[in-house]
Amino acid sequence: MIRYSKPTTTVNKGKFIRPCPCSPGRLRCSYYTISPAVGCPFDCSYCFLNFYEENRDIKIYSNSDDMFKELHSFMASRKDLPTRLGTGEFMDSLALKELDEINSKLAQMTDKYPNLIIEFKTKSTRIDAFLERPANRNIVLSWSLNPQSVIDSDEARTSSLKERIDCAKKAGTHGYGVALHLDPIFMEDSLLEEYLSLVDQTLSTVPLKNIRWISMGGFRYTEELKLSMLERTGLKRTRLTAEFIKCSDGKYRYPRYQRVKFYNAIGSRIKSYADINTYMCMEGPDIWRHIHFDDKKVLALLHT
């Protein structure tokens, strides 16, 4: 089912750059989002964009000049502080050819601002334009990863795991920074081995020295998202029948012991390859203090 039509344009009257919203009571990772568009051509069952009716169409902001002006003044305010900025919060960064030119201009900003690390997060294979230009490690191409069985069941119209890993290898070999996002992780016991195997498959393929960071995030949902998932995909969403707990930020998550088990298993496997910055998305100190693969360097990164 194709829900999305051709992208339309609109004017963004608000801000283009915002601190990543994270969630109340969770450790923030000092990440900023920049949004040249909103909406996504993919159809992932769990995506929060699905419950914003207005986001089911892709809208590209026509006033990109305003976005770049805002970016310059934002970077001026950051002075020399390392700044991680990414376009993948409300859209897939690379899926749309209409954004190639804007992406290229955004990537060029790393020449002007050496403290800027800009991330393009995707589930696509559209990196050809990037492979034709000079790379640097502050331009980070990143992929959301899930085992192929999860891609098949929950990430409609996205590229396969192998395609994503192959692209990450090409990007790293070309000299780009690479980031990996294991998010959402479906923390069902039967899937743990698949996640560990995913780590093996990825880290034995992608050049390790080019991996800037890896994030992990357990599947979480709001009541609204659950209703939306059930309405869109019918009553076959057995993933929603695992035992979830309502957390203090109103989101439902797997129980703490299950999250700690998965994070430690996957994080330790990652660390067995190299000392890659690895952190958890939208988790609080109650989880962090049970994590044994963590190191001080990561916390330093998070609080930059």
Binding site: I245, K246, C247, S248, P255, R256, D286
Partner: peptide, 10 residues
């Protein structure tokens, strides 16, 4: 009480 489950487990 689902609102307290996390605390209970901890």
């Amino acid at each position: 009480d689902t609102n307290l489950e996390e605390s209970f487990i901890e």
